[in-house]
Design a protein around this nucleic acid. Structure first.
Lengths: 234, 234
DNA sequence: AGGAAATTTAACCGTCAGTTAAAAACATTA
DNA sequence: TAATGTTTTTAACTGACGGTTAAATTTCCT
């Protein structure tokens, strides 16, 4: 009669997952509506149709609950980059333009998976000007962020080796690209006053993409920064 | 005997200003050291050598105190842009490169005036994911931010009209430039783990500057985005 | 029906922003 | 120097909120 027990266990697990899911859904909507500090745990519980102590049965702290909302976004970035890397190693890109377009569109896709959460990650990765997460959570965040960064650099390096884009110091280029991308998203988000999607995000991002493409593809003579594999950034 | 009274009034005003200054100094250091939420008003008071109620005699709320720390930074940005505009109208720029270099260096200077505060502004201008300021404060922030943006666009437009840089939609270009700048600063700040200045900020920013210069100056044929005066962004 | 698990209820603790009222310190004027 | 007015301190309080606890209640399984 193991079958029976297993079935019950499975159902219980399903229910637990559902509850976690409903708490996260409620939390996300309250965080977005109220901001982190004004997102009151009792309100999240109310919205999830349960009581506060129940939340604390599934999540250790408010920070912890918040953290679980950020993970899927970081994971999405990883997946998107991984897809590009796969295409690269299969020599699917015939032009640098296509390569760069994929970089930008994959970044946009990560953002669109959960726009507000995407933005939150940027804040909360910061040195702690706003809040300090507990050690474990900020470590986890940093690790995953670092991992994605390494991946982006690897992808850029392969693109260079395949002659898709010009050879530039990958460490710096990765920073510039990511900075440009996140910076524009933030800006359009502010100016869009919370509307989704921000009105001019795509237009602006397209221009940025063209700029980067223009620089990375046009055959301007190599300059002093056009080195690769120089360990400048950590 | 008005003189006497006036002198006394002046001294009292000086003392009041000094006290405000010392509160702000204490607040800044505690905000930077602890983060906004963990910056406790009693601690700020202690550091300023006074007691909490005294702070509340000079500042209405914690938000208000924080807000006064951001103002000088926003003002610095305005001044820097205003300087560039002056140089432009006096036809002091002979090359686009010099113009762009000034844009970047003035932005960097605004950052360096008070790095942490500069970063805070970006967070707190956001839609309120982290905190919601009261109506008055967020309105004030938005107004001043908008004003600086208009100024940046005007500066860019003049630069285009003088043939220093290529003609591109100024609304979009301003977004890209500012996004790029702030994005890189944030990124290097995160990676620099709070060290000042962030190790690679200047290197990365120099590359960004070269990228932008390359695109805005090199004589690539005009493309569909190369319009000016098209009211795309607010 | 009996029993184990999770949930609710309802209260509580600690911390912190912000307030209050009275005492103390200080400066001003006469 | 005494009286007066202003500012600061003291010390306690309020109210909101994160987080906890323990007992009562529900739910679901056997």
């Amino acid at each position: 009669m193991d079958k029976h027990k297993e079935a019950i266990q499975a159902r219980m697990q399903r229910e637990r997952d559902q509850r976690i899911q409903s708490i996260q859904d409620a939390a996300r909507s309250v965080f977005i509506a109220e901001g982190y500090t004004k997102a009151i745990m009792d309100k999240i519980a109310l919205k999830a149709g349960i009581t506060k102590p129940t939340i604390y049965q599934y999540f250790k702290t408010k920070d912890d609950l918040f953290f679980t909302l950020m993970l899927p976004v970081i994971e999405e970035i990883r997946i998107q980059l991984s897809n590009i890397e796969t295409k690269l190693t299969a020599h699917k890109y015939r032009t640098g333009k296509a390569f760069i377009r994929d970089l930008f569109s994959s970044a946009l896709q990560s953002y669109e998976l959960a726009p507000e959460t995407f933005l939150m990650i940027q804040y909360f990765q910061e040195t702690g000007l706003v809040r300090r997460f507990n050690e474990h959570i900020s470590h986890e965040l940093n690790e995953r962020g670092r991992h994605n960064f390494i991946m982006l650099r690897r992808v850029l390096k392969i693109g260079m080796e395949q002659g898709l884009v010009k050879r530039i110091n990958v460490y710096v280029l990765a920073d510039v690209l990511w900075g440009l991308f996140v910076g524009i998203i933030h800006l359009e988000h502010i100016k869009g006053q919370g509307k989704h999607p921000p009105m001019h995000l795509n237009t602006t991002m397209k221009v940025a993409e063209d700029l980067i493409a223009g620089i990375l593809i046009a055959g301007k003579p190599a300059k002093k920064n056009d080195r690769i594999d120089v360990a400048v950034n950590p």
